[in-house]
């Protein structure tokens, strides 16, 4: 994983999100969940200093479920605090994340803020999503040969390009990532219009 993060950073990616654990994953057998939590904690602690040294800003999307063990939540918070002033790449780890949940959360936040219905537009809505500074997603890489969205950042992937390498996630390394980037560069993105935009260029 750290391999891929490093490859992304060196090739100039500004925003990288990893989908570590979905809300639905809680349904897995509890032993498996426990093991996963342990694993995540070990990984976070092991790589924290390195991530910080590379100027990567880390944060966690979701990660508010009371089922997350306290020490792990503490580590998440600490890593976020430690790296919050970094201005290199932003690494968002979606943990216990669900795209629909985010949208519901935004709706709640809008209602709470008392915004009149007519004032709600896409921009305003997006501002109420969790971590609202995340830009639209350009590229989604779904490994392991699966071809599903799995409730991942539903709002942000509206115009994303998708790539489905067959390699399993644990085997997915820097060369695979660079290959995906290369494929992405070949695509022509039109965002529903006719004028082709150069890839990576900010779109309206």
């Amino acid at each position: 994983m750290i391999d891929v993060i490093e490859a992304a950073r060196t090739s100039g990616v500004q925003w990288l999100s990893l989908y570590a654990f979905s809300t639905e994953n809680w349904r897995r057998p509890s032993q498996e969940v426990d093991f996963l939590m342990q694993l995540v904690r070990r990984v976070v602690r092991k790589h924290a200093p390195l991530l910080h040294a590379r100027g990567i800003r880390c944060r966690f999307l979701g990660a508010s479920d009371p089922r997350i063990p306290g020490p792990l939540a503490r580590d998440f918070a600490d890593l976020t605090t430690l790296t919050e002033a970094n201005r290199g790449m932003t690494l968002t780890v979606a943990f216990d994340h669900g795209g629909r949940g985010d949208i519901v959360e935004a709706a709640r936040s809008l209602i709470r803020a008392g915004v009149p219905a007519d004032d709600v537009d896409e921009q305003c809505f997006a501002a109420h999503l969790p971590v609202p500074d995340t830009p639209d997603v350009d590229l989604v890489i779904r490994t392991s040969g699966e071809q599903r969205i799995s409730n991942f950042m539903l709002w942000q992937v509206a115009y994303a390009e998708w790539i489905f390498p067959s390699v399993l996630w644990p085997d997915f390394r820097a060369p695979h990532f660079l290959e995906c980037l290369h494929t992405y560069q070949q695509r022509s993105r039109r965002f529903g219009g006719v004028t082709p935009h150069a890839n990576g260029e900010p779109h309206p």
């Binding site: 602690r45 009371p66 997350i68 063990p69 600490d78 605090t81």
Partner: peptide, 21 residues
Amino acid sequence: GALFRLVTPFPVQHGSAEKTE
């Protein structure tokens, strides 16, 4: 403080589910 906690050795995992933030 955050770094200090992150680099202190991994304490024994006691699966206690403390409340989160």
